[in-house]
Simulated scan of single mutants.
Amino acid sequence: MATAAPTRSVFQSSDLSRSSAEVFAAAADHPVEVTRRDGESLVLMSKGADRSRDALLELAAQLIAVATSTERTLAERMSDRFPWMLALSHDDRALCAEQILSAARASFATGQAHLAIAELTAWKETASALAAGLGRVDVEWLDDDEPVARP
Rank of each mutant, 00 (worst) to 15 (best):
M1P: 04
A2I: 09
T3S: 14
T3A: 11
T3G: 11
A4H: 11
P6L: 15
V10T: 14
Q12F: 12
S13T: 13
S13V: 13
S14H: 12
S14N: 10
S14W: 14
D15C: 05
D15G: 08
D15M: 11
S17P: 00
S17A: 13
S17C: 03
R18D: 11
S19C: 10
S20D: 10
S20A: 15
A21V: 02
A21T: 06
E22F: 05
V23L: 05
V23P: 01
A26W: 00
A27I: 03
A27R: 05
A28V: 02
H30Q: 09
H30A: 09
V32Y: 03
V32H: 01
V34D: 07
T35V: 15
R36F: 03
D38H: 08
D38W: 08
S41W: 03
L44R: 01
M45S: 02
S46D: 05
A49W: 00
D50I: 03
S52L: 11
R53K: 08
R53V: 01
D54L: 07
D54H: 03
L57W: 10
A60E: 07
A61E: 13
A61P: 00
A65W: 02
V66G: 04
V66Y: 02
V66W: 00
A67G: 09
A67I: 01
A67N: 11
T70Q: 13
T70R: 13
E71R: 12
R72V: 07
T73R: 11
L74D: 07
A75W: 10
R77E: 10
R77A: 03
R81E: 14
F82L: 04
S89R: 06
D91A: 15
D91H: 13
D92L: 09
R93N: 01
A94T: 13
A94P: 01
L95N: 09
C96T: 02
C96S: 02
A97L: 07
E98D: 15
I100C: 09
L101I: 04
A103M: 04
R105F: 06
A106E: 12
S107G: 02
F108V: 14
T110V: 04
T110N: 03
G111T: 01
H114K: 09
H114R: 11
H114D: 12
H114A: 15
L115M: 06
A116Q: 05
A116V: 06
I117F: 01
I117M: 11
E119S: 14
L120A: 07
T121S: 13
K124W: 06
K124D: 09
E125R: 15
T126D: 03
A129F: 13
A129K: 06
L130W: 02
L130S: 00
L130N: 00
L134R: 03
R136W: 01
R136G: 02
V137L: 05
V137Q: 08
D138L: 12
V139L: 15
D144Q: 11
D144T: 10
D144R: 06
D145Y: 02
D145H: 05
E146D: 15
P147M: 08
R150H: 09
R150G: 04
R150M: 12
P151V: 14
